[in-house]
């Protein structure tokens, strides 16, 4: 039973990692950039939920509004970050953009610390009164149900966009071969903006879900889940969308199993242990393909 319980906890945690990992992997798939500021988008999204539910209370309506507003705002922030920080470096060596991403991350974290309405101290995140349901000895909280349900809904929506809409198909084409996509008349800048927006929106949703189970918000809160979601993306195969989902769930489960059966102190370390193993054994990840050599 304890095992099933931990797997369930892992699914809930993993679905959050999966949402964040999708942002890393989609952006990487198109512009080959590890967007290290992506974890901080999660923090901004969580603060969005904090302000809205702090002001209007916690109800299904305010939760819905929190998601819509946070996702929308973060999508715009994602586009602005790309246009101002990464777009000018598109033809520069990749390391430049990577360093810039780390800079953007610091800017968002420390910017949050100095903003009077955010500040450096952790704040209680408004949530439902904790309510647990019990099935055959397994506990599941309302927050966990919400987390898993919303994550799966968003992933299904993403799957639909990527596979069945015109812009989603153009994203896949651009990710596969940017020059060939140009020759189709696809406006690459628009696709890149859309990709950042989509990733940031999912990150914002993950932020609200993560804050709901934590339940705290503070400017550095995106760092650790961001880093772990990056590991999840690498584990699944960076650039692969199903890979990011799979990697997220696997990592979440590995973490809760470690917490439950070995030691809770080791739980944070397990992600990075997995990263090292995957880099040694299969650097392309579980579902990743070998990089096509471009001539």
């Amino acid at each position: 039973m304890e095992f099933v319980q931990q797997v369930l906890n892992g699914l809930s945690l993993g679905s959050v990692y999966a949402l964040i990992a999708l942002g890393y992997t989609m952006v990487y798939g198109i512009v080959k950039l590890i967007n290290f500021a992506h974890g901080d988008i999660l923090m901004i999204g969580a603060f969005g939920g904090f302000f809205i539910m702090g002001a209007f209370g916690v109800s299904p309506t305010t939760i819905l509004i929190s998601f819509i507003v946070s996702m929308g705002v973060c999508a715009i922030i994602g586009i602005i970050i790309e246009k101002t920080c990464y777009a000018p470096l598109r033809n520069a060596p990749r390391i430049n953009a990577l360093i810039t991403a780390i800079g953007v991350s610091y800017l968002l974290e420390n910017g949050g610390r100095v903003l009077p309405f955010m500040g450096p101290n952790p704040k209680q995140f408004p949530t439902f009164k904790i309510q647990n349901y019990n099935f055959l000895g397994i506990n599941i909280s309302q927050t966990q149900i919400m987390t898993i349900a919303i994550s799966i809904l968003l992933m299904a929506l993403l799957n639909y966009i990527i596979n069945y809409t015109k812009i989603g198909k153009a994203m896949r084409a651009t990710s596969f071969d940017m020059n060939a996509a140009c020759l189709m008349g696809i406006n690459i800048n628009r696709i890149i903006s859309f990709t950042f927006a989509l990733g940031a929106a999912l990150g914002a949703a993950a932020g609200i879900l993560f804050a709901s189970s934590y339940p705290q918000v503070e400017p550095y809160m995106g760092f650790m889940p961001g880093l772990k979601a990056f590991v999840a993306a690498v584990l699944g195969g960076i650039g692969s969308i199903p890979g990011a989902m799979l990697g997220g769930f696997l990592l979440g489960i590995a973490e809760t199993l470690t917490k439950g059966f070995i030691s809770s102190k080791l739980a944070d370390g397990v992600a990075f242990g997995i990263l090292i193993i995957i880099l040694v054994v299969k650097p392309t990840g579980i579902l990743g393909k070998n990089e096509r050599e471009k001539v």
């Binding site: 198909k169 153009a170 896949r172 084409a173 071969d177 060939a180 996509a181 020759l183 189709m184």
Partner: peptide, 25 residues
Amino acid sequence: GHVPEGRRIFANMTVMENLEMGAYI
């Protein structure tokens, strides 16, 4: 229109999706 060297089709997409990309504009 441009038929590039080495074809450069979108190998991960279906035949129909490739044509749809051609009709993107």
